[in-house]
Design a protein around this nucleic acid. Structure first.
Lengths: 146, 146
DNA sequence: TGCGCATAGTTGCATCTTGCAACCGGACGA
DNA sequence: TCGTCCGGTTGCAAGATGCAACTATGCGCA
């Protein structure tokens, strides 16, 4: 049966999952952040079947995460680039990476500041006054209450 | 064919997706953060088929995201609770939510500080000295280089 | 012009997953 | 004892996925 559509779900989490709710899409976006642009580059680095890749790329373009642009090297082919919206997924990717490293035991990669080459602080929520907040210190309320 | 396994992929993002790489698992975790604990609660709030839910719950328990505990109300049945590892997904969920709201246009919910009832700052990376960093200001390097 | 190769897909087919509905078994409650 | 709720399991039809083979177009080159 068709996968149940989440498009008109009230929750923004569910709607996001409609756009990037499968593993391949997330990995394609990861590769795009790593500088990959071409069909063949995605295919080789992810070792994904061509048909799957083609469908995913079309979907990501349709959802506004990627856009097709003429190839920079003058070839006939198109390249896939992250849109502004797609670049917004950086925090999501890094949150996933941070979780994966945090519970996997070994840390293989570190995110460093380009300016001073020092590791950046782990991702966390901060209150208005700068205090760091855990899940228990926050509450999700309807926008109308704020 | 069986979905390709990402379990031994080098990238922590891919390994995380092995645990919570499908939409239902993410939504189950979201509901767990919202306080849902019982099979029936998840079933009703997500409107997911029982068999799918059963398989997802088993997988999340096996992956250490949820754990089964005796029901708090003394009933025979078990309840599903987030483990420490599962609670670590909070940032991932909130990053997804933030992205979904950011590009959806309308903002329906706001995360507020329990202490002063003020909205918390949007999730973002910060340098060692507190500067906010965008994707371009950072670099991912192997842990051995740090 | 013709040949071989690379890129970027499409198509066919076998297998796996998803979703619905029906069924099951234990614990209650009347 | 009968009916009902809860928490599943089972069977089936329709997608989704993965592999391999095939196509289409452009390029370098002789």
């Amino acid at each position: 049966m068709r996968r149940k559509s989440l498009e008109k779900d009230a929750c923004p989490v569910a709607r996001s999952l409609e756009a990037v709710g499968d593993a391949w899409s997330v990995l394609i976006v990861r590769e795009a952040f790593a500088g990959k642009r071409r069909f063949g580059e995605f295919e080789r680095s992810l070792r994904v079947a061509k048909n799957i890749l083609a469908v995913r790329l079309r979907k990501l373009v349709a959802r506004g995460v990627l856009e097709q642009v003429p190839a920079s090297d003058g070839s006939v082919h198109q390249e896939y680039m992250l849109t502004e919206k797609g670049r917004g997924l950086y925090l999501v990717l890094m949150a996933i990476r941070q979780w994966g490293e945090g519970c996997g035991g070994k840390t293989e990669s570190v995110l460093i500041d380009r300016r001073d080459r020092k590791p950046v602080k782990p991702l966390a929520f901060h209150a208005h006054d700068g205090r760091e907040l855990g899940p228990g210190g926050m509450e999700l309320v309807p926008a109308s209450d704020a």
